[in-house]
Design a protein around this nucleic acid. Structure first.
Lengths: 132, 132
DNA sequence: CCAAGACATCGACTTCTGTCAATGTGCCCG
DNA sequence: CGGGCACATTGACAGAAGTCGATGTCTTGG
């Protein structure tokens, strides 16, 4: 129900492996995007008039039924990637750029200082092999 | 088997919705990251000595069996997120920053010019509601 | 107040995914 | 050359996820 508590809960883990809790939170967010239909939904909504769209605008171009589209939209809203705004009979959905940025920051950290950054890209192979 | 053909196959779709093929490619990449164990694996490898680690270094901190860890590593290698380098009896895995950057670029495009960018964040609501 | 439209929810089904035990493969040391 | 070690593969299973038809809820228009 809650979108995402914290996408980088462990700022001190820059040089330490991610905790199981942090990994679970992150995986919840990435699972929401790891679906072809939902990716197309996000793209369709972003490319739509005014950056928002209702369900009836998305059902046909996706080739999925209305309940399925509604289900995917709920997943995206729960993940904090979309906002739902019900006006009259229609429900308008719009992207939340901040959430995308936070996820992007985690991934781009591979070449920066995040959880996927290599402290020593090439060197100190003295103890390579670890405890063996 | 092939890592990822192209993470942004449709550069011209900046203002057009993503194609089904592009969405399928992207979802394959994100599915690889959308798992708590694999996220921790990536983090563990990046934080390890020299930015690389073998299976035996990862089994115990993850709390998963060796076949399961090996399976996850294969998924990550197939997605182009890790490289495998077999030296002697050990197989060393290292992160591929370029792949992370490409995925991050797709997500950060929500506030830029990518597939998730809103052409008109607030305005031109004249035709809001589309065909209704 | 009733009918119609837009969307959400439910129930059921199929497929995908993560996990493990058991086994196979290749390398190294004695 | 034979035994042990690191890792990959296989087969089987439980749980999760995507999809649809049917139905419920709410709003608007007549």
């Amino acid at each position: 129900m809650l979108p995402i508590t914290d996408l980088s809960p462990t700022g001190s883990l820059v040089r330490e492996p991610m905790t199981a809790e942090a990994a679970a939170d992150l995986s919840r967010a990435f699972k929401a995007i790891a679906d072809p239909g939902r990716l197309r939904l996000l793209s369709l909504i972003a490319a739509h008039q005014g950056g928002e769209a209702c369900v009836c605008d998305l059902t046909e171009p996706l080739g999925l039924t209305q309940p399925t589209v509604s289900h995917h939209l709920k997943v995206l809203v729960d993940a904090g990637l979309l906002t739902r705004d019900k006006r009259g009979v229609w429900a308008f959905f719009a992207v939340v750029p901040a959430t995308f940025d936070r996820l992007a920051a985690v991934l781009s950290s591979a070449t920066g200082s995040g959880p996927f950054a290599s402290p020593d890209p090439a060197g100190s192979r003295a103890s390579a092999g670890g405890t063996h």
